Amino acid sequence: MPTPTKDSLMNENDTPERYAPLVDALVARGWYQWPRALSTSLCQALLAEAEQHEADGHLEPAGVGRGVIHQVNATIRRDEIKWFDGRTAAQKAYLDQMAELQTYLNRSLFLGLFEYECHFARYQPGGFYKKHLDSFRGRASRMVSVVCYLNPEWQADWGGELVIYGENAEDSGDIRAVITPEMGKLVVFMSESMPHEVLPTQHPRTSIAGWFRCNTSVTGKIDPPK
């Protein structure tokens, strides 16, 4: 089988205007789910990469916190990750789509997004990520979170749903959405205001977790990604 190129993994009919419903939803409620946002061929190529990283032992236990407070805590989250380096055709195709989305968000909402970072996330049976925020208002630079699912033919009894809550992080009863991790689905939400969690999965679950960042600094230096 020939090696896929970046162009072969893109959707020919994609136009920037397809992001308009996403932006409207972010303004109205802070989150949006988009089934079949990515082509099957791109998802399959990305899934194959994630599985190869796992087979090669390149995945690392995910941690919580950033910088000096970063730590691995299996009581909070149980997944393994591999950061994108942008070297493969599949990663380049995915990152190109995220760059297009970044441009559209900046033009529509004037968010000042300047960078995107992402990693593969692989959950084994029993894996989960308890309720959390991706960013704390005024204390970090992640503004918009993006999750892309790579799981083919996901079954309802496998669990692993993404639960999005209302802005009051203490109110666990304020559930805004329960999202099934189906291949090609993109979920976008505001990092500072939408608490969320990954429910325990009964089947290997693979996604791409990413964040659009604004330009912040710490002690006079730009806050680095990761």
Rank of each mutant, 00 (worst) to 15 (best):
R142I: 15
L133M: 09
V147E: 01
S141I: 06
W158F: 10
S141V: 07
Q155G: 01
D157P: 00
G160I: 02
K131M: 10
V178A: 02
N168K: 12
P181G: 04
P181F: 02
V147C: 05
P181M: 02
C148D: 10
I164S: 01
R137Y: 12
W154L: 04
G173C: 06
Q155K: 13
H132A: 11
K131C: 08
V163F: 01
E161K: 05
G166T: 05
G159D: 04
F136S: 06
M143R: 13
I175N: 06
Q155Y: 03
N168D: 15
G173A: 10
V178L: 01
R139E: 15
N151C: 08
S135A: 15
H132I: 10
P152M: 07
V178E: 05
Y149F: 15
A177F: 01
S172Y: 05
F136W: 11
I164H: 00
S141H: 12
E153N: 12
V147S: 08
G173N: 15
E182F: 01
S172M: 06
G160F: 01
D171G: 03
V147W: 01
Q155V: 10
S145H: 09
A156G: 04
G160M: 03
F136H: 15
I175L: 04
I179A: 03
W158H: 09
F136G: 07
D174M: 07
W158C: 08
S141Q: 14
L150R: 02
I179Y: 03
S135R: 09
E170H: 08
V144K: 01
F136V: 14
S135N: 15
R142W: 14
D157G: 03
V178K: 09
R137T: 14
E153G: 07
D174C: 06
E170G: 05
L133S: 10
P152L: 05
R137L: 13
E182P: 00
Y165C: 07
V147H: 03
E170Q: 12
Y165L: 08
V146C: 12
G173K: 12
E153D: 15
L133P: 09
E170N: 13
N168F: 05
S135W: 05
R142E: 14
W154D: 02
D157T: 06
D174P: 01
G160L: 01
K131A: 12
A156V: 11
A140L: 11
S141T: 14
V178R: 14
T180K: 08
A177M: 03
